[in-house]
């Protein structure tokens, strides 16, 4: 009982709760911190889900052999896709910086390597594709290569993220993206656009929804 007379315990203005209330306070505070870190991730999944889904549906509908129900002129479909892609890249960069803001130290290196890997891999796959085109890769095969390469890139980097942060959502997403990206070429062009819209776009949107539900349930 002597403990209660130490100066550190003399916070008379603070009611000291019972153990159950204190444990609940501890757990809810830690959950709130994790939720604050996760909010930008959910937004990223959502944004990329919309971009893959709408963007690739637009490309699929912009091809005469694509969407059987309606066709979008290619001069509309391609810019729609490019604008969505650029907007998503910018949004991801902004959100990515916010995830761990205010924190410095050991984890900064991992986060920076993870962030840089997106632009480094993105550039490498673009250069490879350009090289293949310069060596005679046909436009039809290029249409198969580029989206599949980027689906595989996302899948691979998400596996890295899963290992880094012990994050199951990234593990599942990464595996789905690898499977869909690899299989998409078998659908041929422009069928691959539909496969990627549903497979990759759908996976991102389901991941966003699943994390949102889990977050609400945790409260």
């Amino acid at each position: 009982m002597d403990d209660n007379r130490t100066p550190a315990a003399a916070d008379l203005d603070e009611p000291i709760g019972d153990p159950r209330a204190m444990l609940a306070l501890l757990e809810s505070q830690q959950r709130e911190v994790l939720n604050a870190q996760q909010a930008p991730v959910i937004w990223m999944y959502f944004i990329w889900g919309i971009t893959w889904f709408v963007g690739f549906l637009a490309l699929w509908s912009g091809d005469a052999d694509g969407n059987p129900w309606f066709t979008i002129p290619a001069y509309v479909a391609t810019p729609v896709f490019i604008v969505m892609l650029v907007a998503s890249i910018v949004a991801s960069a902004v959100l990515g910086i916010r995830i761990n803001r205010g924190v410095r130290g050991a984890s900064v290196f991992s986060g920076a390597v993870y962030g840089i890997s997106w632009s480094a891999c993105g550039t490498a796959f673009a250069v490879l594709g350009t090289g293949l085109i310069s060596q005679g890769l046909s436009p039809e095969l290029a249409n198969l290569y580029f989206p599949a390469a980027y689906a595989l890139m996302c899948g691979t980097i998400y596996l890295g993220g899963a290992a880094l942060w012990r994050d199951v959502s990234q593990l599942v997403l990464g595996l789905v993206l690898l499977a869909v990206g690899a299989a998409s070429a078998f659908a041929g062009s422009p069928g691959n656009d539909l496969v990627l819209a549903i497979g990759v776009g759908g996976a991102f949107l389901i991941a966003a929804a699943a994390l949102t539900v889990r977050r609400r349930q945790g409260r």
Partner: peptide
């Protein structure tokens, strides 16, 4: 308790 619980979510070696 809230302060220590929040700081405990940081990786060891990180500062906020």
């Amino acid at each position: 308790l809230k302060i220590t619980a929040t700081l405990a979510t940081l990786e060891v070696g990180d500062q906020i």
